[in-house]
């Protein structure tokens, strides 16, 4: 537990040391939303939903793709000696989930600032954002660890990640769509499915990551 906390702090400190990465993500959100604002004056819920998740997906991929790439061989070796694989991946998953959640919230604020927001049930929408950042965080963290074994890790994070993320994204899109409706739809099934996918993936990743990590 203690080492996981230390690893999360390490991640955070690394992030702070490279402020340009985080700043880049913030600017990415703002410029995308501004382009949408400039090109579309008034639009309906469905395009809003589509654009929100496209922006969200790309922010998440950009933020997490460097998760393993930034570590030099020396850091890897040091971590390998100091902590177990399970601890490393848990710390990275928790950190990336939090990072993606912050970025998603920021994207939501930017959407609110520039574009009229059609959300009726904020509780449901925030549930979708929390579940989404959790799902995207764990999958992208693991996929980026796989992609890091290739020469072009950024490309492979997107290529390998997109089909694996699709079941999660489809359920998320349904959730946010339901949050636009005046009358609340029953979305219990979708939430259960999302939680099921996330749980199964976390379990598998904890088993599989040590195999990816040892080199």
């Amino acid at each position: 537990m203690k080492s996981i906390w230390a690893l999360i702090q390490l991640e955070f400190r690394m992030e702070m040391r490279r402020k340009y990465a985080l700043g880049g993500a913030f600017l990415y959100v703002l410029s995308t939303v501004f382009i949408i604002y400039a090109s579309l004056q008034n639009f309906k819920e469905l395009p809003w939903n589509a654009l929100f998740w496209i922006v969200a997906l790309f922010i998440a991929v950009n933020a997490v793709a460097k998760s393993f790439a930034s570590e030099q061989d020396g850091t890897q070796l040091f971590l390998y000696q100091m902590a177990s694989g399970v601890e490393v991946i848990l710390a990275k998953m928790i950190y990336n989930t939090l990072l993606i959640f912050v970025l998603f919230t920021l994207a939501l604020l930017a959407f609110m600032l520039f574009l009229a927001i059609p959300v009726m049930h904020y509780g449901l929408f925030m549930t979708a954002i929390v579940l989404g950042s959790f799902g995207l965080g764990i999958v992208l963290t693991f996929i980026s660890s796989i992609a890091n074994k290739t020469d072009s890790s950024a490309v492979f994070t997107a290529v390998l990640g997109f089909p694996v993320l699709l079941p999660i994204l489809l359920s998320l899109i349904k959730l946010t769509q339901a949050s636009f409706m005046l009358e609340a739809e029953s979305v219990g099934n979708d939430i259960v499915i999302l939680l099921a996918i996330d749980t199964i993936l976390v379990g598998l990743i904890l088993i599989l990551f040590p195999l990816v990590w040892k080199d």
Binding site: P163, P167, I193, I197, L204, V212
Partner: peptide
């Protein structure tokens, strides 16, 4: 090793795609 790991993860995704969604 890496492709075996990816195979396992993608099988889970495939099950959700083909049989749950």
């Amino acid at each position: 090793r890496i492709s075996a790991v990816y195979n396992i993860i993608s099988f889970v995704a495939a099950i959700f795609l083909l049989f749950v969604l």
